[in-house]
């Protein structure tokens, strides 16, 4: 074991103390001291890991447990609007009441699983659209001269400097019946009367693709930028035409980037609330809206919590797939 700096100095002091104690006939004390010191060193290492653990515990696990607790209770007209999970009856009985009815309700009422399915569909289609638009852009940036590359990346990140909400509101101004786009098309003479674009599925897809495109481009760019150009030259050299080279070399090597980008788009898109609320029709079924309605419209916290738990489980699955994939990748590259 090599020790440096402060650990080395403390180590030397400890060893001297140990030998002193041994010479004084206090063998037991010396061993006890050495063990103490080792434990303190381990503690330092664990402390570093403990901070992120504490963070996750405080801001993810504890709220999750609270939500789970609410999901297992009954709705009540009270403050807070749900029954407690346990209570003392007559100072001697602990009365635990677990209500699984909320989860049963999610399965029975087809509104919920329909909106889950629709959310997944919207997220999937948006992810594919982001991939189709983002891949050429990422490829273009990665292949651009290094002087332009920074500027192009800047342009991708630039929208983040404006609030997400304001950008979505701006789309209302563009898409509404007497908005920018319709006026422009009518001025061109392409159409006579405005096309209804706002409050349609089209507007929802447009909003999601627009908002999440940078999350697709950035990981793809990071991947494509690393692509060794001599691999492409080697493929050409072996008689492979450029289009085939893209399919057989570039595309397979960019799979980790595609997966990372797709996850970063898909996961927030499933639970998206703001975009369908502002741009979609009132009857657009998305799980984020259902959640909102249950909490603030119906004030049915237990059902809303059950929806949230179900949504979380729905999202955990793709994350687990992503992690599994990344672990396999890092294993293959090591």
């Amino acid at each position: 074991m090599t020790t440096r700096g402060i650990p080395a100095v403390t180590g030397r002091i400890i060893r001297q103390a140990e030998s002193l104690l041994k010479r004084a006939g206090l063998e037991g004390l010396a061993i006890w001291l050495a063990r103490r010191v080792r434990r303190v060193r381990h503690l330092g290492r664990n402390l570093v890991i403990a901070i992120p653990y504490a963070w996750l515990l405080a801001f993810f696990l504890i709220p999750f447990v609270i939500v789970l607790k609410i999901a297992l209770s009954d709705a009540a007209i009270a403050q807070p609007p749900y029954t407690p999970l346990w209570e003392w009856v007559g100072d001697q009985y602990l009365n635990i009441k677990v209500n699984l009815g909320n989860f049963m309700f999610l399965v029975e009422d087809n509104l919920y699983w329909k909106s889950y399915l629709n959310s997944v569909k919207v997220a999937l289609v948006s992810t594919v659209a982001c991939l189709l638009i983002g891949y050429p852009m990422a490829y273009g940036i990665a292949r651009a001269k290094s002087a332009y590359r920074t500027i192009l990346l800047m342009l991708v990140i630039l929208p983040f400097w404006t609030s997400f909400l304001i950008r979505v509101y701006a789309w209302i101004g563009i898409l509404k019946n007497n908005g920018l786009l319709n006026n422009f098309l009518m001025w061109l003479g392409v159409i006579d009367s405005p096309i209804v674009m706002l409050q349609t599925d089209f507007a929802v897809y447009l909003g999601i693709v627009y908002s999440y495109l940078p999350f697709m481009i950035l990981p793809l760019y990071a991947n494509l930028e690393k692509l060794d150009e001599t691999l492409l030259e080697a493929a050409y050299d072996l008689g492979c035409k450029p289009a085939r080279t893209f399919l057989t070399v570039t595309l397979p090597l960019s799979v980790p980037g595609i997966i990372a980008g797709s996850m970063l788009v898909f996961i927030p898109a499933v639970g998206e609330f703001v975009i369908p609320a502002l741009l979609g029709a009132p009857d657009t079924l998305m799980i984020g809206r259902i959640l909102w309605d249950e909490f603030f419209g119906n004030r049915d916290w237990p059902v809303a919590s059950a929806v949230a738990i179900a949504l979380l489980l729905l999202l955990v699955i793709p994350i687990v797939i992503l992690q599994h994939n990344q672990a396999r990748n890092s294993e293959a590259n090591s």
């Binding site: 030259e233 493929a235 050299d237 008689g239 492979c240 090597l253």
Partner: peptide, 30 residues
């Protein structure tokens, strides 16, 4: 890709996602 010439690269430029026989057969598959 149409020259009657092949090249061995200094970095070898082996395709990392293909195994040895896939790498070797790449030219023939074209």
């Amino acid at each position: 890709y149409e020259r009657p010439v092949n090249m061995m690269f200094q970095s070898y430029a082996l395709f990392p996602h293909m195994n040895v026989s896939q790498n070797v057969s790449f030219g023939l598959k074209q």
